[in-house]
Nucleic acid binder design. Structure first.
Length: 420
DNA sequence: TCTGGGGTCCTAGGACCC
DNA sequence: TCTGGGGTCCTAGGACCC
């Protein structure tokens, strides 16, 4: 038996923790560059505003209905997420976090469904009380069915945030009311194929043969079919080590200044390298990219893949490689709208094969990197780095972050003040 | 004018091996 | 003119997730 714990309207709920005045107000959180709506309060969902719509398309509606909007604040959401995961960990030996706002927990220690539901209710109450974020829990034998149960828990007040699918009767009832395109693992393409084949509900799909599922949707579809029929077969990657690490941003305006682009990219290099070192890995490849707006014709792109002679986690090495590559391919008078770096070919940092004839002093590099990391961890983010940073004034021109809330829970300067 | 960011897994097809 | 059979590995691109 598993339970899925899913936070309701997560980013919006995080903002409301520190802004209780917004509890019954329509609120949205926007993606980077204040581009798209990525989280909506229930009030906003009821207005018919869809996930992912560009904000400019609903700006008028936002004014009309008094919708409050926030730029995204991942420092805050990440911190609240890890606090929630800590609580969840107390209730299980096996926690599988699958995104910033949801995690599966193994409840096989519960003797029956009633016991599992009681645990789920306790979890919900504890997270509500100590963090202030509402969550929903779905209990079932497979992860795909947990998703369905969680949806019911979220959307019908009668469940009080906890729903279980444990009997065959419950399974059939739940799936018969569940649209096929809402099933976890069925995306737009698969849904279109299924509709064409006359399948509109999850139950209709589950009642077809496995061969039907695998012929139409290959292995992933067959796995979804099995899960809907109660066979647990989707293992969640529980390894926290990432196979790729990305940092990319869309800029508020096209960037034509090479120095500014280099500064932005060097910050991205520092970020991904930090992440890489935190998971104690090294990488052998890095991709650097920059392109003009994908909505304009005559799109200009730079995609460069760099290979390191030996796997590395060193910020300086990555930054230098990035600069060399960019200077070769950068075009003047081109408004680069988006840029980023991706680390690839990631492997554990231990036992890296060294080069016999190396032009870098790796030990010295590592010492320097450690010293810099130590200073930065004591004095704040990137006090020392390898390039001049984008200064505050430039940063506000580079990125739209006007409506960003403070990092209430992670920065001492942003801590909340109470007037008693 | 304005349209995000960070991931994973699967598959087909090409390159290569003997 | 005729041109096998059986593999593995890598990569790009598609589909999906939140």
């Amino acid at each position: 038996m598993y339970a899925l714990c899913d936070c309701n309207n997560f980013f919006v709920s995080c903002e409301r923790v520190f802004r209780p005045d917004l509890r019954d107000k329509p609120v949205v959180v926007l993606s980077g560059n204040d581009g798209c709506v990525v989280a909506r309060s229930n009030e906003v969902k009821r207005l018919g505003i869809k996930m992912g719509v560009p904000f400019y398309q609903i700006r008028q509606m936002a004014e009309q209905y008094g919708i409050v909007h926030f730029s995204s604040n991942f420092e805050l959401y990440g911190d609240i997420s890890s606090r929630i995961m800590t609580i969840l960990g107390k209730y299980t030996d096996e926690l599988q976090q699958c995104s910033v706002d949801e995690a599966y927990i193994d409840l096989s220690y519960c003797t029956d469904t009633e016991a599992a539901k009681a645990v789920a209710a306790r979890i919900k109450a504890e997270i509500q009380k100590s963090i202030g974020v509402p969550v929903s829990l779905g209990i079932a034998a497979t992860k795909t069915l947990c998703k369905v149960a969680t949806d019911y828990a979220k959307h019908y007040a009668g469940y009080k945030g906890v729903c279980s699918i444990s009997t065959e009767e419950q399974r059939r009832k739940a799936l018969s009311d569940y649209a096929i395109e809402d099933v976890w693992g069925i995306g737009r393409q698969s849904a279109a194929k299924l509709h064409k084949a006359g399948v509109t509900t999850a139950l209709e799909f589950a009642d077809h043969t496995e061969l039907f599922a695998s012929n139409l949707l290959n292995l992933p579809g067959a796995n979804t079919w099995r899960e809907l029929n109660g066979h647990d077969c989707i293992a969640l990657g529980d390894s926290p080590e990432k196979a790729s690490i990305t940092c990319s941003r869309t800029f508020a305006h096209g960037v034509t200044d090479r120095t500014l682009l280099e500064q932005a990219l060097s910050e991205f290099c520092a970020k991904v390298a930090e992440k890489l070192r935190r998971q104690q890995s090294v990488c052998q490849e890095m991709m650097v990219f920059a392109d003009t707006s994908r909505f304009l014709e005559n799109r200009q792109t730079i995609y460069i893949t760099l290979h390191f002679p030996i796997p590395t986690d060193n910020t300086q090495e990555m930054t230098l490689a990035m600069l060399r590559a960019l200077r070769q391919r950068w075009q003047p008078n081109t408004p680069y709208k988006r840029a980023g770096v991706v680390l690839l070919s990631i492997s554990p940092g231990k036992g890296v094969q060294q080069l016999l004839f190396d032009d870098r002093d790796r030990q010295r590099d590592t010492q320097l990197q450690k010293t810099i990391d130590r200073i930065n961890s004591r004095t704040g983010k990137r006090t020392i780095g390898f390039m001049p940073q984008v200064d505050v004034k430039k940063a506000s021109e580079l990125y739209s972050i006007g409506a960003k809330s403070p990092a209430y829970s992670t920065r001492i300067s942003d801590i909340i003040t109470l007037h008693c």
